[in-house]
């Protein structure tokens, strides 16, 4: 597949896929945050089945990219980290979904 904007057959070019979201773990995190307003670290960890370290690492990557917002605080004496998608993150996720949908719809 070439890296032109429009490849043969109208399939999205490989350049169009957001590699940050394309990684399975991060796509899972983005998907879970997309359907809620916000969730904390424990909730996302339980829902995705990831370990603490796994989720923490991926969360940092998404935060660096500006796709998620991370708010750290306390609930009582327990530290609490709340996550939510930024507007940029929502747009990036929607673009990613659109690209993937096009890929499968246009595939022979």
């Amino acid at each position: 597949m070439t890296e032109n904007e429009e490849s043969a057959g109208g399939l999205p070019s490989i350049k169009e896929f957001d590699k940050l979201i394309h990684e399975p773990a991060r796509m899972l995190i983005m998907a879970h945050l997309y359907v809620v307003e916000s969730a904390d670290f424990l909730f996302i960890m339980r829902q995705t089945g990831m370990t603490f370290g796994n989720l923490s690492a991926h969360m940092s990557r998404l935060e660096e990219a500006g796709y998620i917002e991370v708010e750290k605080g306390f609930v009582g004496k327990r530290p609490n980290t709340r996550l939510s998608l930024t507007e940029e993150g929502k747009a990036a996720f929607e673009d990613y979904r659109k690209s993937m949908r096009q890929l499968f719809e246009n595939a022979p």
């Binding site: 809620v36 307003e37 424990l42």
Partner: peptide
């Protein structure tokens, strides 16, 4: 929920 639910399963704010 803050006392009993969220410490156990985490907090979520659903889209309304």
């Amino acid at each position: 929920r803050k006392r009993y639910t969220y410490p156990r399963i985490g907090y979520v704010k659903l889209q309304s």
